[in-house]
Design a protein around this nucleic acid. Sequence first.
DNA 1: TTGCCAAGGTTGTAGGTACAACGAAAACCG
DNA 2: CGGTTTTCGTTGTACCTACAACCTTGGCAA
Lengths: 178, 178
Amino acid sequence: MNSCSYKLMRDNERVNTRWLSSRELSSWARLASILEALPPLLDSQLRHDAGLTHFDYRVLALLSETEGRTVRMSFLAKANNATLPRLSHVIQRLEERGYVERLASAEDRRATDVWLTDEGWEKIRFAAPGHVEMVREHVLDPLTEEQVDQLGTIAEQILRRLDPDGELRPIYGKHDDD
Amino acid sequence: MNSCSYKLMRDNERVNTRWLSSRELSSWARLASILEALPPLLDSQLRHDAGLTHFDYRVLALLSETEGRTVRMSFLAKANNATLPRLSHVIQRLEERGYVERLASAEDRRATDVWLTDEGWEKIRFAAPGHVEMVREHVLDPLTEEQVDQLGTIAEQILRRLDPDGELRPIYGKHDDD
DNA sequence: TTGCCAAGGTTGTAGGTACAACGAAAACCG
DNA sequence: CGGTTTTCGTTGTACCTACAACCTTGGCAA
């Protein structure tokens, strides 16, 4: 049948590609399916229950975890792997809804600081339980404790390749209790 | 500092939510970052090198792996976790570009079959090496063989929760060699 | 049959993301 | 210093996805 998308091609068609072995393919295919299915699921839960996208949630979450609830645009963008244009649009919409405000930075007159309003604080406080429950149910609960740790290690290694400078990683990274 | 998005709230704020422990949080945060970063990366590589989205690629890949290169719309949709409207738009664009054709199904007059043209076959054949290289470099290579297997098991368990009926899983699932 | 409802697809539109172009302030440098 | 180059951010547009409305066919039962 000679499938051509991930597996071996016929010898005479080979270029120089190292195609995926069965086990690699099987692992990747499942991850790819998760990539396809999980984000829309998180989005739809959050949109339905709180009117937020998952990306909105991450932005508000990071703000809520920061001393003074204030973060610079460019930092917010890097931490969420977003381009500045995208973040700019998102922040504009969040500002129109009253969840954040933009302030000209004192130190750098090019820069803009984003501040989480009380309304925004209440918003994410309201949205958090449902979202956490979703993550628990669909990601953590199906795994054993050991697998949760394995996942952490695996994800860390992949992330180190995706994001060598570690700008993307600090999110939700405050391990201050337990 | 009392972060509110994933971790424990103050006792007096607690509702009934089981917040994430440090280790759970750390694993989930990393996975969430991958969810945010990997799909855009795959998209941009494919768009740049072949003018396809990752979703386009999955559609063409499934077609290319199917006997007769023909698959019904509704099956294509389920296998890719897409809604029918979304798939319909995507197929329309692929058809305009000459990569697929739509045929009225003989068995069911409501149904539409999608057929991968020779041009479409060449397209994915052309796109595959670069995409596979990307997957290798950013997902498989950073992991040990053992971790690749662990990832497969973990992903399978999560997927079983996301997709209990297994409609999403068969993709790329032909393990016919190795 | 007739009537009803579920399943398969299409179309239109609103909302979000990607990309390119732009402007302004800071940093670098000869 | 004066000029060039990054960095920071906004705006506009094209593309893609989500959602709702709609139409047709098939399945099922009275």
